[in-house]
Amino acid sequence: MLELSILFPALLNGLTMGAVYALIALGLTLIYGVLHIINFAHGAALMMALYGVYYLKDSAGIDPYLALPVVIPVMFAAGYALQRGVIGRASHGKDENILLVTLGISIVLENLALFLFRSDTRTIDTPYTLSTLDIAGAMISLPKVVAFGGALVTAAVLLLIVYGTDLGRAIRACAKERQGAKLVGIDVDHVFAMSFGIGLACLGAAACFLLPAYYVNPTVGNGFVLIAFTVVVLGGMGSFSGALLGGFIIGIVESVGGLWLGESLGQIGIFLIFIAVLLFRPQGLFGAKA
């Protein structure tokens, strides 16, 4: 069943799919690393971003890749407002409450989409949707190759922000020691909201790269949440390069596991890795020791 001629293209497919996972996980890992919260609304936010990309293409004719400069700032603003106005306020800093609040937000967003856009699955057609790139005999979907590049660029930009700007220094300070950050005069609430905003902005980028080869409906986000968590854990919570590599690893494991064990059972490989990393190396493959 496992033929070598298939293995090479399968590896490349896994790598490109992994890039999409990495894009989604980059935002999640930032939010986790700084705010220490598990954001259950991540999938719903991705879904909203996908609708944004869809309607820009459908009603204004804007190509998904050209929509990047629109979708990213909008998602950033939405994230900032959501953290500042809802999550930070309603959760009173308690873990169990953050859980319920993000859960509540995801229920609201999912059903808002259902109400506004109906439950139809929507796809867009671009000139390159069905195009492939020939890489040493393997035909790899062009939108996914673009997504691969997009993930690299997004990770680089994030690293630049976090390690090269004043905001980044504040973010890192809040992530490490929020009381201390407060004492030295950092507006912690603002930094938290900025981090959440940047996290959702990553989803905006992910949506632009994902939609040409995928679809959108109100529940589309659910299919990515668990994968994104796995990537975050594998890479080490809060680590961008970890999320990037973690995404690639998960993509490849899913792809090869699918070949080997069948598409349905193949999913198990991802969760076994997830469990093994949590047990034996909870700081992740690339995370610093907590």
């Binding site: 497919n13 799919m17 995928y214 792809s255 699918g258 598409e263």
Partner: peptide
């Protein structure tokens, strides 16, 4: 057999 959702059918 494949899962719902299956994110990629390339393989």
């Amino acid at each position: 057999k494949h899962a719902n959702p299956t994110r990629d059918f390339s393989n």
